[in-house]
Design a protein around this nucleic acid. Structure first.
Lengths: 183, 183
DNA sequence: CACTTATTTCAAAAATGATTGAAAATTCAA
DNA sequence: TTGAATTTTCAATCATTTTTGAAATAAGTG
């Protein structure tokens, strides 16, 4: 760690961690989680919470909470071998494994919930339709809602497959998205 | 539109539009955009802004702003044939086309920006490395940062392909995500 | 143990994002 | 044109999320 490279290292960290903050924020995590992960990812040595706080200019509390969440998602782990009172943290580097876990534990659940709710909406309308048949508007809504439900189910299988083996083809979607236009 | 089906229709709309609000919010749009789109999508007739405001309990201003944004993303269009002073709006129903447009115009740009910024970070370190060769830390950071950049570039090509023809395989990613572990 | 240091928790503050409401601008029918 | 109706804009308000800071808890050391 030559001192004269410090400025360059700092600039690189700033650029990379801001970028990662944006990406991770887009995925619904706090930007500071992205910054902390990047800081650790770009450091050859593991870091203590107070060093992280210092470098990211976050409070001790914020760092503690972010680290907890990062560890819950498996993005960061504790360094077991550190001759120090303080705990040290290191970034998980298998990014593909991280992505799969997040897809499995979060995106899949979201799509699952969507399938469930769209199904309930369809059920409500089917019930009304049984009571009062031939209501034009109910028939229309049912058609569209079933299309949405079909699509969401396809999405579920896609995300499931992606989480499982990192392979995906969107081909089966085409042509089923506009159910009312089917022959 | 049999009056006795009204309650069922309202329940179905509430269920579906809440679900869509969640999904769209996750994708970084305002939830109310999802609610408005769903309301229009489930209606056989196009709707005026004030009807939308009434049904969604949003202010005229919020509806106007949301409709503008929805039209910019091609999620909603104006109904050209309406014998009415007021403008009427209708939902775009080709969901696959919508998804592709959003991927093309938004996700792709985000990944593009990320590639650019990671490249700049790499350039900064390469410069430092030329000045002061053999700095262990700079070397380490370069290795990791190049891995991140590679990965982002693969992501770019993937998203590009997805936007272009709705087909994607993540297979090429595997094995390149952990660059320091390559043979 | 007892004591110091490190970490977590959480209510309050700050920051950010969404919505309102009313004024300004635009549209359209007469 | 004009003027009523509609739509847009935007500063202010409201709501949500993130961060702080300090007290409470836990962990490690001698």
């Amino acid at each position: 760690m030559h001192p004269s490279t410090e400025e360059a290292r700092e600039r690189a960290i700033a650029l990379a961690s801001e970028t990662m903050a944006e990406i991770i924020d887009f995925w619904g995590f706090k930007g500071s989680m992205g910054r902390i992960w990047t800081l650790l990812y770009l450091s050859s040595a593991s870091m203590s919470a107070d060093t992280i706080a210092e470098q990211t200019k976050l409070s001790a509390g914020a760092v503690s909470m972010s680290l907890t969440e990062l560890m819950q998602w498996g993005l960061v782990s504790r360094d077991p071998l550190t001759g120090d009172r303080k705990r040290h943290y290191q970034a998980e580097t298998d990014i593909w494994a991280i992505i799969r876990r997040i897809i499995r534990e979060r995106e899949l659940r979201m799509v699952e919930r969507a399938v469930d709710r769209f199904s309930r909406a369809v059920a409500v309308l089917e019930e009304a339709n049984a009571q009062v048949p031939d209501d034009r508007e109910v028939t229309f809504m049912l058609k569209r809602l079933r299309g949405l439900l079909d699509l969401t189910r396809i999405g579920y299988r896609l995300v499931e497959k992606l989480a499982k083996d990192g392979q995906i083809s969107l081909l089966p979607i085409r042509g089923t998205l506009n159910p009312e236009e089917r022959p």
